[in-house]
Simulated scan of single mutants.
Amino acid sequence: MHAVRFAEYGPPSVLTVVEADRPEPGPGQVRVAVKAAGVNPFDLKVRSGAMRFGTLPRVPGAEVAGTVDALGEGVSDTAVGAAVAGWAATGGYAEYALLETYAPKPEELDWAQAAALPVAGEAALRALEELAPHAGETLLVHGASGTVGAVAVQFAVAAGVGVVGTAGPANLERVRGLGAVPVAYGPGWADRVRAAAPRGVDAVLDAAGHGILPQAVELRGGTAERVLTLVDGAAQELGVRFSSGGGRSTQVLRTLFRAQAEGRLVLPDPRLMSLANAAQAHAELEARGSGKIVLIP
């Protein structure tokens, strides 16, 4: 099979297309013929060496949608030929990958939509669970136009939470369309949040970074309680909670897929690129810093 692999840490150019053996499913795993594989900022960090674990060479890619091709021992919740999506146990940038946590792909979602949702969607739901905003409270989402932020905004609004969302000027109307009060990034953003939420904010989700945590703590009345970041490594020195992984489950996938299939979760269609252009996809995501890309074998 064709797979994208890197044998050393470095720039996007270290990604190369190679011939590799098909992985064999172990107990509890399924092998899928990959139809779409999501590209995430996490993939860029692993490829660059900013995050190092496991061994090299390795195939990147954490989220996959595809057709079940083979079943491992003990698998009884799906069948060969079924359409599924979830997190890859082996790298997803390949023609075949192994999955341990997966759910049926609804017919209403195409392959790319299903592959674009697990990582960002899980992060958003995990953050909301940890912050626990209630109906009538106000949640500030920093980075509301990105995929994580957009998922968080829509689930929070559906639960009766008032949301203020920060974004770049070009994305303010999109944030408004999600049901949040839009506030522009840039100098003075905290004052604009105060104007948008004169009674204050009850919780803050940072899905974008940009060093906003000190102001976020100020907006919470000087306390780091109920301030959470998914991206800013300075969290610990400020007493802010940093949330990273740990919420992967079939139920999370079912919740996300069902919401999107029913139209309760609306996200922009991801940009499609071929597997052979994985290096270009990494370079573009690094340059833009946002926007979802999905690779098609």
Rank of each mutant, 00 (worst) to 15 (best):
V148T: 04
A167C: 09
P23D: 09
A283H: 05
G92P: 11
Y93V: 07
Y102S: 03
A159Y: 03
T166C: 04
R226I: 06
A132M: 01
Q29G: 05
G209H: 08
R258M: 00
T166I: 04
K45A: 15
T255F: 01
V17L: 15
R271K: 13
L172M: 08
A65R: 03
G146I: 01
E108Y: 02
H2L: 14
T229C: 09
P268Q: 09
G121R: 00
V153C: 10
A116H: 01
T90N: 10
A116K: 00
F242L: 15
V75K: 06
E137L: 07
V201N: 11
T90P: 13
S76A: 15
D77S: 13
L265D: 06
V4Y: 09
G168L: 02
G26I: 11
A158R: 15
G66V: 10
G247H: 14
A50T: 09
E137P: 11
R5E: 15
G245T: 12
G263Y: 11
G246V: 05
H2A: 12
P268M: 10
I296S: 13
P57S: 09
E286P: 06
Y9T: 14
A167D: 08
V64N: 04
H134D: 13
R254M: 06
L15H: 05
T138Q: 10
R288I: 00
A184E: 15
V161K: 07
D202F: 06
N277S: 15
G10N: 11
P169V: 13
A85R: 01
A235K: 08
A224P: 15
M51F: 14
S76L: 10
A278T: 11
G86S: 07
G143V: 03
F42R: 02
S48M: 09
R264D: 14
G186C: 11
V153F: 07
V193E: 05
A114L: 05
A50S: 13
V252L: 02
E225G: 12
A70V: 06
I293M: 04
A70K: 04
A127E: 04
L228A: 07
P182T: 05
L109S: 09
V32E: 03
A158I: 08
E173R: 14
L228N: 10
E218M: 01
L219N: 01
A123G: 06
A184Q: 13
A70I: 06
E108W: 00
V17I: 10
A33V: 13
L56P: 12
E130C: 00
L117P: 04
L265C: 09
L219Q: 00
K35F: 00
L44M: 11
L117V: 00
A50G: 09
P11V: 11
P23T: 07
Q260S: 11
R52S: 04
L172Q: 04
P25K: 09
P169A: 14
L219S: 04
V4C: 08
L178T: 07
Y102T: 03
A281M: 07
L238P: 12
P214H: 07
R22F: 02
G200S: 11
P11T: 09
E63S: 03
A234V: 08
V181Q: 12
I293H: 02
L172K: 06
